[in-house]
């Protein structure tokens, strides 16, 4: 799991740096040479999707999502059981969501939907998002199980 997280972070990180480079080259080219990068907007959008969905499973696995912890300590151990239950519920939702996303990807591929300028297949990127939804579902489940055995952390 740790090496997978490392790989995903490395992917997100390199795409992020590429995105910086892309914007700079695009603006420079347009302003000084009257020649912008074709499809820069599209590439930005795809890069964004790659970055976000490479990291979502990672932060889910590490449990670093935004949580509200005002009432921590007010409730007893039984809450932990409910937490696990909700982890199961969320992971089911994410699994079904991934399923729906994959359905949309298959549809986009079947109908040859492409991007506007570069004509890249839209279905491929949707498929990537779907797979990452499934991976996040697995991470949620593992986080829920982990919570049963671990003491509640103080603050995140």
């Amino acid at each position: 799991m740790a090496w997978l997280a490392f790989l995903l972070e490395a992917l997100a990180g390199s795409i992020l740096l590429a995105l910086v480079l892309l914007t700079c080259v695009d603006v420079f080219g347009r302003y000084f040479f009257g020649n912008a990068v074709d499809g820069a907007t599209e590439m930005t959008e795809i890069a964004l999707a790659i970055i976000v969905f490479a990291e979502i499973p990672v932060i889910t696995w590490r449990g670093t999502h935004v949580v509200i912890d005002v009432l921590d300590g007010v409730f007893g151990r039984w809450v932990k059981g409910l937490e696990t239950l909700s982890a199961v519920l969320i992971s089911a939702m994410l699994y079904l969501l991934g399923d729906t996303v994959m359905g949309q990807a298959a549809r986009a591929l079947r109908r040859n939907v492409t991007t506007e300028y570069l004509h890249l297949p839209v279905g491929d990127i949707i498929q990537y998002i779907g797979i990452m939804c499934w991976l996040t579902a697995a991470c949620t489940l593992s986080w829920g199980i982990y919570r049963i055995f671990m003491r509640r952390e103080q603050h995140s």
Binding site: L16, E45, L48, L97, I126, I129, C133
Partner: peptide, 23 residues
């Protein structure tokens, strides 16, 4: 209901104007 959610997931992750956040 799931299709509603999945269309939000797919298009928000590719929303051009949100690219300023990581940058």
């Amino acid at each position: 209901a799931l299709a509603m959610a999945s269309s939000r997931v797919i298009s928000t992750a590719q929303e051009y104007s949100l690219s300023v956040i990581p940058l």
